Simulated scan of single mutants.
Amino acid sequence: MEAASLTDGTAAAALRAFVALLVVVALILATAWGVRRLRGGFVPAAGWFRVRAAHALGPRDRVMLVDAAGAHLLLSVGQNGVRVLHRYDDAPELPEAQAAMPFAERLARMRRGGE
């Protein structure tokens, strides 16, 4: 009788560990989904469609500069759909991206009263 109760306890512990593992995996997937929703799902694609630049205007609205099948388009993407804002004849020149100011430097400026 003692061996049967030991087996039941081991099975219950294994089941609890398995359920805990499933919960952790579900939390990881939910967090990844949430981060993707907050970023707007922006993932540059390869092939005939390429996102050259994107700028968030709000939680669900953004402006995107895309190359699609040889056309250069400025798009407005939001919860009401996608609209073409402008069609470029030639690919527009993009400014060089500026590096963000390091946090420590920004904090030091704020303490001095600058910026």
Rank of each mutant, 00 (worst) to 15 (best):
A4P: 00
T7F: 06
P44R: 10
V19L: 14
R106L: 15
A13H: 04
D90H: 13
R60F: 04
A30R: 06
F103Y: 08
V23Y: 07
V43P: 00
W33P: 00
F49E: 06
L15Q: 12
F49H: 10
A91K: 14
G9F: 03
G70F: 02
F42P: 01
R111T: 05
F103W: 11
M101Y: 00
L29D: 08
R16K: 14
L75M: 07
L74A: 12
V24L: 05
G34W: 08
G47Y: 07
A100G: 12
L85P: 01
V24T: 10
T10R: 12
S76H: 15
L74D: 09
V77Y: 02
R37G: 00
H55R: 07
P59H: 12
R36S: 10
P59M: 09
A26E: 06
A56P: 14
V51E: 13
F49L: 13
F103V: 15
D67R: 10
G81A: 03
M1D: 10
G113Q: 04
R60C: 01
R62E: 05
A12G: 00
A104F: 02
M101E: 15
L57R: 09
M110C: 03
A14E: 12
L65S: 07
V66F: 02
L21S: 11
V77D: 09
A3Q: 12
A56R: 15
A53W: 06
A13I: 02
V82G: 03
G34A: 13
P59T: 12
F103Q: 12
A17C: 05
A104D: 10
M1H: 11
L73P: 03
V66N: 01
R16F: 04
R62K: 14
P92H: 03
L38S: 02
R16T: 13
Q79F: 06
P44S: 07
